[in-house]
């Protein structure tokens, strides 16, 4: 442990020096619009020398998880080099407390907990650990990386670009979620296990009040590692790597794995309710049929047919 920390410190010391070197020899040919911003950023980074992203994410799942959801979890683990995978967690009642303990034990600062219920419903807890907040999502439309339709591939541990749709800034809870996602899914700069290039991009997009996740490989024709060939940006294509999933936020809590509720999805129906509803609908169908039958019977009884005048015609 001690060794690691030392290594980290040296990195911290090295990083700002590099930046200072890079700042003056910035090429003049860049777009004007960007240049000002870059200057600002350079100043910012110079002032934020002390900042270092030490995010560590604990990834676990509940017992009795589905294979599909387990694979999804493993995919997430492979995407996040700054995460620690842990054993499945059992207990149900004291879950919050045990999970918090576990996260502390692993010295992580945030947690992704995949909770599978009834072997078909997957819930994802996203928590910032010592003191909140935490979010509970329902996970829908899961596609794992193993699917052969997703043909892309990228370096394991390269830092992803995160793209957010602009409607993340419309509401307070989306803002909070965006911040949490950037912290958890963004790989810390100069992380030990991260690789230097950027060859994949994450998409977080809010459609229909759900957060949709996609992961694309970036393939650009290029010659050197810092120059794009002429027109290379136009020739850039994205190939989907996976996994895919869709998060439906249920609740946001103030603490980690508990605490006061800050947000509740007003449109949310639990999958149990949905199933019950469907069942009830079917039951209703049968009841309706029975009712119709009895009604018909009653009707026939109350209005008997008139005796046919030709009934006796052929008897003679």
């Amino acid at each position: 442990m001690g060794k690691k920390r030392k290594h980290g410190e040296t990195e911290v010391a090295a990083a700002p020096v590099k930046k200072d070197d890079a700042a003056p020899e910035r090429p003049q040919r860049t777009l004007v619009g960007w240049k000002d911003k870059n200057n600002n950023e350079a100043r910012e980074s110079a002032s934020a020398v002390g900042f270092r992203n030490k995010e560590k994410v604990l990834v676990t799942c509940s017992r009795r998880i589905n294979f599909r959801y387990r694979h999804l979890m493993l995919n997430v683990v492979s995407l996040l080099p700054h995460c620690k995978k842990d054993n499945k967690v059992e207990s149900k009642e004291t879950k919050g407390a045990t999970l918090n303990e576990l996260v502390e034990l692993k010295s992580c600062s945030s947690c992704l907990f995949f909770e599978c219920r009834k072997r078909k419903d997957l819930y994802l807890w996203m928590a910032k650990c010592p003191n909140g907040p935490s979010v509970k999502f329902l996970v829908n439309a899961v596609h794992t990386m193993e699917e052969l339709k997703l043909t892309g591939n990228h370096l394991q541990g390269s830092r992803p670009l995160l793209t957010f749709s602009s409607n993340f800034d419309h509401n307070a809870h989306w803002k909070l979620l965006k911040e949490m996602i950037t912290q958890i899914f963004g790989v810390p700069k100069e992380h030990r296990k991260s690789k230097p290039h950027h060859d994949h991009v994450f998409v977080f997009s809010i459609v229909d009040d759900h957060i949709w996740f996609r992961n694309y490989q970036i393939s650009v024709p290029h010659i050197e590692s810092d120059k794009i060939a002429r027109g290379g940006l136009d020739n850039m294509t994205l190939i989907e790597v996976g996994p895919r999933f869709c998060l439906n936020p249920i609740k946001i809590f103030g603490g980690s794995f508990g605490g006061p509720t800050l947000y509740e999805n007003p449109f949310y129906i639990s999958p149990n309710q949905i199933r019950a509803l469907e069942k009830r609908k079917k039951a209703g169908k049968f009841a309706k049929k029975v009712k119709a039958k009895t009604r018909r019977k009653m009707h026939e009884q109350s209005n008997p047919l008139e005796p046919d005048e030709f009934a006796e015609m052929w008897k003679e």
Binding site: E25, R26, L31, K35, H198, S205, R214, V220, L233
Partner: peptide, 28 residues
């Protein structure tokens, strides 16, 4: 398609930024 476009647009912007910062960002 919307997701793809978002990713594409985002990547372009990010690469412009990275390029203007003079950092190597593409895998040789």
């Amino acid at each position: 398609l919307a997701f793809f476009n978002q990713a594409l647009e985002g990547t372009k912007r990010a690469f412009e930024k990275l390029q203007s910062m003079g950092l190597p960002f593409l895998r040789p």
